[in-house]
Design a binder for these strands. Structure first.
Lengths: 96, 96
DNA sequence: CCAACATATGAACAGATGTTCATGCTATTC
DNA sequence: GAATAGCATGAACATCTGTTCATATGTTGG
């Protein structure tokens, strides 16, 4: 798999609204699965499914703490990409 | 449509390998549809279909010049996002 | 105007993707 | 150690998406 496909894979993961909300929910601080489900309004099962994909692509990292598992955005690249396109989206809204 | 869905829409567009190659092909300088097709190895028809989506989302801008139409990445946000995740992908490869 | 060239569009199809429902697994508390 | 809380997993399904093939649209040169 070449770089382009790796990149595309990451973008595709961020390209689903539910998954994007999950990512944004744990952008700044680790959040438990339950908290993410509550924050995003998605079912626990769905959140878990998505987290698995995000974890497999190393976009988030999860650590177990007693019964709960806390997930957080993997690194600064991910955070930067999200913040960057957030600005772009904001500008799009303003100009249309 | 809220910001998250706008963002997700853009990410989804970048999340297809063919479309990502098209975007990368016209990242730095405007390229004709034919040139993009040649550079990416995709058919003219397919490239045109994808360019329509990218144009609709304002990720690229196209200007007609005689018989050809030249497309280029819309702005610096788009370029930054792509370059940023390229670095991320490169690091991923190195560390696995 | 006609022929050619470059790009755009439409229909149709196979394969991928997000979601739900039900169930399994791990860790804790009593 | 049974019961419960929190999370993960599997199957199944409807929908969406990328691609191809054929054809239309627009543009330039003779």
């Amino acid at each position: 798999m070449d770089d382009v496909e790796v990149m595309a894979g990451m973008f595709r993961l961020m390209g689903d609204p539910t998954r994007l909300r999950i990512l944004l929910a744990c952008l700044d601080a680790p959040q438990s699965v339950g908290a993410i489900a509550a924050a995003t309004g998605a079912s626990q099962s769905l959140v878990s499914h998505h987290l698995r994909l995000l974890r497999a692509a190393r976009l988030v990292a999860g650590t177990r703490e007693a019964r709960q598992v806390f997930y957080v955005a993997a690194d600064d690249h991910v955070r930067d990409v999200l913040r960057n396109l957030m600005h772009h989206a904001a500008e799009e809204r303003r100009s249309t």
